[in-house]
């Protein structure tokens, strides 16, 4: 499976194929960057979900709640640090946005632990109940967000240094998209190093393949799962923070909306595969932006079409994880 490069070619393939369709190379470059930024933000949100599924066969339909909470926590922290955000200094801006994102991760991760214990643990192995209960968790979480932050949408001011675009020749490059790409790639790199170079990562990969055998070697896979669930929730919070700043507004339903894209991505990638999730996220982000430009009315339908095509080609997703 490690030697399967065909899916890797899809991303450059779709980028190249879009050039003649879009026509102008300036728009194409802008759209490509926008697609990569969107894809990487979705990847950040989706990576934990696909791993928790691979490890314990648990799919959290309430994952969107952590995305939303991340966005709201960031909004609150940024509101508190507003003077730094408005300052005309990149460093002060980062000093505000950094803690905001870390706070989003901490709160989402902490809530993830509670969610795992209260909502998910009692229904391990029962898929029907799992879907129902985690959906119920999403309902309650959305309502609690409205209790804490009020029912109306909150606006979120982007820091000065990340506003606007700079020109590279004729091509306008939006600064925040670069920021999102950098963070997304950093998360991908950190996950890759963890999964491939550390003992915990080995355990996770082995557990995704065969949890029973990992237990027979003397490791407690539940403990591992709780950790992965918390990290996945924290990443969802980070992704929600990035998405919220990108949209510049947050509403309680932001999580449920983005969660649909997240689900499409992990289906495309192959449930349980981080690499597949990465490629799937980029494909979804790019397709959404190209199609959004070419035929705006069917932009979200295009993702469904993309999913259908990929499932016809590989029914288990791009990188099917062994045994599942």
């Amino acid at each position: 499976m490690k030697r399967d490069f065909i899916p890797l070619l899809l991303v450059p393939g779709i980028i190249i194929a879009a050039l003649p369709l879009v026509g102008s190379s300036e728009s194409w470059a802008t759209l490509t960057l926008a697609g990569l930024a969107m894809g990487l933000m979705i990847f950040v949100m989706a990576s934990g979900l696909t791993l928790t599924f691979g490890l314990m066969d648990v799919l959290n339909f309430g994952h969107g709640a952590f995305i939303a909470i991340g966005a709201f926590v960031t909004a609150s922290v940024m509101a508190g640090l507003a003077p730094w955000l408005k300052a005309d200094s990149l460093w002060l801006n980062l000093a505000a946005i950094g803690p905001a994102m870390l706070a989003a991760m901490a709160v989402s991760g902490g809530l993830g632990l509670a969610f795992e214990r209260a909502i998910v643990r009692p229904v391990y192995g029962q898929h029907l109940k799992q879907i129902l209960v985690t959906t119920g968790g999403l309902i309650v979480a959305e309502q609690l967000i409205k209790v804490v932050w009020g029912p109306d949408q909150i606006t979120l001011a982007r820091p000065t240094a990340l506003r606007g675009a700079f020109l590279l020749g004729e091509i306008a490059i939006e600064k925040y998209r670069i920021f999102a790409v950098v963070i997304g790639l950093a998360v991908f790199a950190a996950l890759s190093v963890t999964l491939n170079r550390t003992r915990i990562g080995l355990l996770i990969r082995a557990g995704v393949e065969n949890g029973e055998m990992v237990e027979a070697l003397g490791y407690r896979i539940r403990r591992l799962f709780v950790g992965v669930f918390a990290v996945g929730s924290a990443l969802a919070g980070l992704g929600g923070a990035m998405w919220g700043i990108y949209q510049e507004t947050v509403t309680a339903t932001i999580g449920a909306q983005v969660a649909v894209l997240v689900f499409i991505v992990i289906i495309i990638g192959g449930l349980g595969s981080v690499g597949g999730c990465f490629i799937g996220a980029l494909l979804v982000g790019l397709t959404a932006n190209y199609v959004g430009f070419l035929a705006p009315k069917v932009a979200l339908g295009s993702n469904i079409l993309l999913m259908a095509i990929i499932l016809l080609w590989r029914p288990q997703g791009l990188y099917p994880v062994a045994r599942r």
Partner: peptide, 8 residues
């Protein structure tokens, strides 16, 4: 899948 299709 149904969630994705329905929202689209």
């Amino acid at each position: 899948i149904t969630l994705a299709v329905a929202s689209a």
